[in-house]
């Protein structure tokens, strides 16, 4: 089968980008979307053109490195699916496919479809951890954790940090990402001592980095490949409010 792609090309962060049209032949329904780009790149390379730069690594939906906006939707049309796990059988060959990078000011384009998402690392560094130096831990069974708390914490901890939530959010907010970590750690007994300061510090850092404010549109959770629920944001707000009430900072 033959597919038409309109791919965002941009040589560097400050360069002007544009959509460039390519036709790709020999596409089979079992190919993943990234394999389609592989095929395109092999051809571009041999033709003496620059291949399309795009991020990817594990190709099994867990590392969070890949992420393309396909026809206006972060990670493409399939629900709860990363770009690497998206297959061509879901696309109509007759309709051109538009491929763009994540768009958000804190995610500057590096080249073509590659963006710099290190702002998400800064948010985690601001407090997305439990301070537990190696060697100082009590026995793992010293503190039981109720199963429902552990399960809900896991649901939030499943975040792969791909940034699709930011890409989809009309406000360019990273709230779902931040809230997922705050929820994961805030639900566990081990996370209690730093719970409120963690939420406040992470949120402040997120705002300082230039992410937009959350208006709870739900666009984030709709594209999240791991289905992180919007409830996590309510939890974050709760902890931030508690931080403000408890210790005037």
């Amino acid at each position: 089968m033959r597919y038409t792609l309109r791919v965002w090309r941009q040589t560097g962060p400050d360069a002007r980008g544009r959509l460039v049209e390519y036709a790709v032949d020999g596409v089979t329904p079992d190919m993943s979307f990234l394999e389609l780009l592989d095929v395109l790149n092999e051809r571009l390379l041999l033709d003496g053109d620059e291949p399309v730069a795009f991020d990817h690594d594990c190709r099994e939906g867990i590392c969070g490195m890949c992420g393309l906006v396909i026809d206006g939707v972060a990670h493409g049309p399939e629900k709860a699916t990363t770009t690497c796990q998206l297959h061509m059988r879901h696309f109509d060959p007759a309709v051109p496919i538009v491929v763009e990078p994540w768009r958000a000011a804190p995610f500057p384009v590096v080249r073509d479809l590659v963006v710099d998402r290190s702002a998400l690392d800064r948010v985690i560094e601001a407090g997305g951890y439990i301070s537990a130096p190696a060697g100082a831990a009590p026995d793992a069974h010293a503190v039981p954790v109720p199963k429902p708390a552990a399960d809900t914490a896991f649901d939030a901890a499943a975040c792969i940090g791909c940034g699709a939530c930011v890409a989809a959010c009309p406000n360019g907010s990273a709230m779902l990402f931040t809230a997922a970590k705050v929820t994961h750690l805030g639900l566990l007994p081990q996370g209690q001592p730093e719970r409120h300061s963690r939420a406040a510090d992470m949120l402040r850092t997120q705002d300082e980095l230039g992410f937009g404010g959350c208006t709870q549109t739900g666009a984030c959770t709709a594209v999240c490949p791991k289905g992180i629920p919007l409830d996590t944001i309510a939890r974050l707000n709760h902890d931030v409010l508690a931080a403000a009430l408890r210790s005037p900072r």
Binding site: W8, G72, A104, T217
Partner: peptide
């Protein structure tokens, strides 16, 4: 803030997910 955080839009505009009220 939203405009600053999202200075560039998408060429292909999909129907924005989320409820009508929110939009």
């Amino acid at each position: 803030r939203a405009r600053k955080a999202r200075p560039t839009g998408y060429a292909h505009r999909a129907r924005v997910p989320g409820g009508y009220a929110a939009r």
